[in-house]
Design a protein around this nucleic acid. Structure first.
Ligand SMILES: [Mn+2]
Ligand SMILES: [Mn+2]
Ligand SMILES: [Mn+2]
Ligand SMILES: [Mn+2]
Lengths: 223, 223
DNA sequence: TATATAATTTAGTCATACCTAAATTAATTT
DNA sequence: AAATTAATTTAGGTATGACTAAATTATATA
């Protein structure tokens, strides 16, 4: 069995390489709240276990074996989030922190039982896809809310799950995965978005909008 | 926050001092599958944190502060066992191992939610008392099954939860906490017990009987 | 009481996973 | 092409928690 730290590195490399290919030492250090020198040290260990590929100064990527483990941990994390949310009523802004610790210690048996209890779900409370037990992830197509223009309507697909204050903020507008909204106004000079959610208006700043991903984007008439 | 290892030491000291007062280094080492020298090292740390009292060569006991932490971990463990058993259907011989890892990572919030889901239970699936959220433990009165004599009837109160093969064996006789049985025969020369469980006969060896605790002991007529 | 045995502690090692500071390499400017 | 800047790696150190081997202390036996 891998250490908890090693599992967290693999998971983080997976997430970062989804966005931009090879993952640099510095980016990974930032992401894990650790110094670059520590990243170099762990990468050496992971490389010796053939879980990552690494060329000095050129960044790191997962091998197939590393990918399998990363997806396994991500599956644990997202199943746990949904389980805590649905079975125990933990609020959606609290499940991430809890799952972050539990993901490393649950057995395959408990994983399977939660999966069955939940009816083999495909997304977590923040809209992120749950890899199935073979590690297959459904690709979701979405764009950041910051790409939206005046008058467009859309549906929330996914939101960043790691900032619990942000999630509480979104909850106060009833802005969850599956929620539809329409852009009423995009303020100039990189300003905030005014949107309509089921008849209620809300103002969403750029920094917040960056963490919201949407699809089903359509031009719609103004009521 | 304490380390996982420190929490396990406190929990183990609690359990051992319940049986026999001061806990020796060697006993603790055996119990934790660790060498006595390692125990000495950890005891020094726990003493510096004022969680245990220790006189060289004289054994160790918990302070009040140490007791609070030990009971907190035991509460987590037993609530988790019951939760896994009732909410996820994990068999009673599997819950201990699972809870052993989870007990160190769940939050107070999840603890409280499991407690409410279960209706504020007082015993775990093996009959051990669950300390309440203030650390109060209901004392159960029971004797080891090995003290029983021919013809006595009783009710199972508690069984040792750490040996999963033993639990499967007991399960095969439907011998759970709450189960009533009557001793039909105690074989001489420290021999096995033949018992009657709801009309079914079973033979229970001494080594097994040592790990079963009973109460409500009565002489009863042979049918 | 002296000696043998058993338990405990001390001393020194190892592996993990982090850190800071210094050295090295790569990328960007001039 | 040389110099500056930024990123990365190396070197050396800390804390935790285990280990073995040796020294010490307590207990049991003669
Ligand atoms: Mn798994
Ligand atoms: Mn999530
Ligand atoms: Mn607690
Ligand atoms: Mn138990």
């Amino acid at each position: 069995m891998l250490t908890q730290a090693a599992e967290d590195y693999l998971k983080s490399i997976y997430k970062l390489q989804e966005k931009g290919g090879k993952v640099s030492t510095g980016i990974l250090a930032d992401y894990l709240n650790v110094k670059p020198a520590s990243v170099t040290g762990m990468i050496k260990k992971l490389k010796s276990m053939k879980l990552v590929r690494h060329e000095r100064y050129q960044g790191v990527t997962l091998t197939d074996a590393g990918m399998v483990i990363a997806l396994e941990i991500i599956r644990h994390h997202r199943l746990l989030e949904l389980y805590l949310f649905k079975a125990l009523g933990v609020p959606w802004d609290g499940v991430h922190e809890e799952a972050e610790k539990l993901e490393h210690v649950i057995s395959e048996d408990v994983e399977a039982r939660m999966d069955a209890f939940l009816g083999y779900p495909t997304t977590d409370p923040h809209g992120s896809p749950i890899p199935d037990k073979n590690g297959v992830v459904l690709k979701t197509h979405s764009i950041p809310m910051t790409d939206l223009k005046n008058g467009q309507s859309c549906v929330v697909v996914e939101v960043n799950d790691s900032d619990s204050a942000l999630l509480r903020h979104l909850g106060s507008f009833n802005l969850y995965p599956g929620t539809a909204f329409r852009v009423i106004e995009v303020a100039p000079f990189e300003g905030p978005f005014t949107i309509d959610i089921a008849g209620q208006q809300a103002v969403i700043g750029r920094e917040v909008a960056k963490h919201i991903f949407v699809n089903n984007v359509n031009e719609t008439d103004n009521v």
